[in-house]
């Protein structure tokens, strides 16, 4: 008796890549924010940049399931690459982004050989170790990086030769948002591609994927490189918009913070990374003005609660709520 495989409903997968109305509205928010909060444009640019950084971590953690405590390494590499380029006369922003992304991708590709060995715990340690090594290197190579004083003399040329970086941060804001949008769009294409689906397969069952012919190691190395490139671009953006690189771009707290944002928003969903960043940075902005110590305490408390009760973050809660509402209707 022949067993007829039950047809798998592929319709949701086919529909997934299409843009939904809510998403269009979501991308109108940055435009609205520009007119609503014209005085806090630098904070808003920071949010866009950190959002891109969270997105890069989401690619490797949320979609491919590679745990990393040292993702900040690539952010820092990108930041320093862009800073040094601009300092020595190649101040074109887009060129800087491209080169910073490439350099970070190269570092990511090389370190992927170290990271992809071993268990989760080994990965956590190796990523952390690599980031700490880079931090110490940047700290000690003062003639290149300026050490603790930071890299100064970053001189940026106008974006596309047209838009100067102004004092009010208008250009910086639009530039950051535009770059974020382009890379978000690209990431969206990637996660819905067969490549992206195979990553999710690897995350769900790493033993079965080779059996259906997916080269697990090559795929993971590829996405790790991609995540590194994204982080590098985010780092370069930070350098270009602030025209300064501090040692802080390689610090462990930044690595931890971006992970928290991602977990808060929900891993494995691109909007989760952005929403997490938005909530986190808004809360940080207001609460740390009140008292930095309270902020840290509540951050810790929220983190514990999220892990215990809301494992999928804000996006997970939102999806549950939507399902319930639809189920009742």
């Amino acid at each position: 008796m022949a067993i007829i495989p039950s047809p798998v409903d592929l319709a949701p997968l086919r529909r997934a890549p299409a843009w939904r109305t809510a998403e269009y509205i979501c991308w109108l928010l940055p435009v609205a924010a520009y007119f609503l909060f014209p005085t806090s444009l630098s904070l808003l640019s920071q949010m866009a940049i950190t959002g891109l950084f969270a997105l890069s971590l989401d690619l490797i953690l949320g979609y491919a399931g590679i745990v990393s405590l040292g993702h900040v390494a690539f952010f820092g590499v990108g930041a320093y690459a862009a800073g040094l380029l601009a300092k020595y006369g190649y101040g074109d922003p887009l060129l800087g982004l491209a080169i910073a992304g490439t350099v970070a991708a190269a570092v990511g590709y090389l370190s992927s050989f170290l990271v992809l060995r071993g268990s989760d715990l080994t990965r956590l340690m190796v990523t952390l170790g690599v980031a700490m090594m880079l931090f110490e290197a940047a700290n000690k190579l003062t003639e290149f990086t300026g050490g603790v004083d930071g890299l100064q003399g970053v001189d940026m040329k106008p974006v596309l030769g047209l838009f100067r970086f102004d004092l009010y941060g208008k250009t910086a804001y639009w530039y950051s948002v535009a770059v974020l949008f382009v890379f978000f769009w690209l990431a969206r294409r990637i996660v819905h591609s067969p490549f992206g689906l195979s990553l999710r397969g690897i995350k769900q069952n790493v033993i079965r994927m080779p059996a259906i012919g997916a080269p697990v190691h090559a795929r993971l190395a590829a996405v790790y490189t991609l995540g590194a490139a994204y982080a590098g671009v985010a780092g370069a953006l930070l350098t270009q918009t602030t025209q300064f690189v501090s040692l802080d771009v390689l610090s462990f707290p930044r690595s931890a913070a971006v992970m928290l944002m991602l977990v808060l928003g929900g891993t494995g969903s691109l909007y989760g990374a952005l929403i997490g960043t938005l909530v986190f940075m808004t809360a940080h902005h207001f609460l740390s003005n009140l008292n930095p110590q309270y902020w840290q305490f509540w951050l810790g408390a929220v983190l514990v609660l999220v892990v215990l009760f809301a494992r999928d973050g804000i996006m997970g809660i939102a999806q549950t709520v939507i399902k319930r509402v639809r189920g009742k209707a």
Partner: peptide, 30 residues
């Protein structure tokens, strides 16, 4: 608290204990 997370992934445990760390640091500060 810890008991609930024995079966959880390493990542969850890392996040949970980083959260505890933050709370401990600010409590000590306070």
């Amino acid at each position: 608290l810890y008991r609930r997370l024995y079966g959880a992934s390493h990542l969850d445990q890392v996040l949970f204990s980083i959260g505890l760390n933050f709370m401990a640091i600010s409590a000590a500060h306070y």
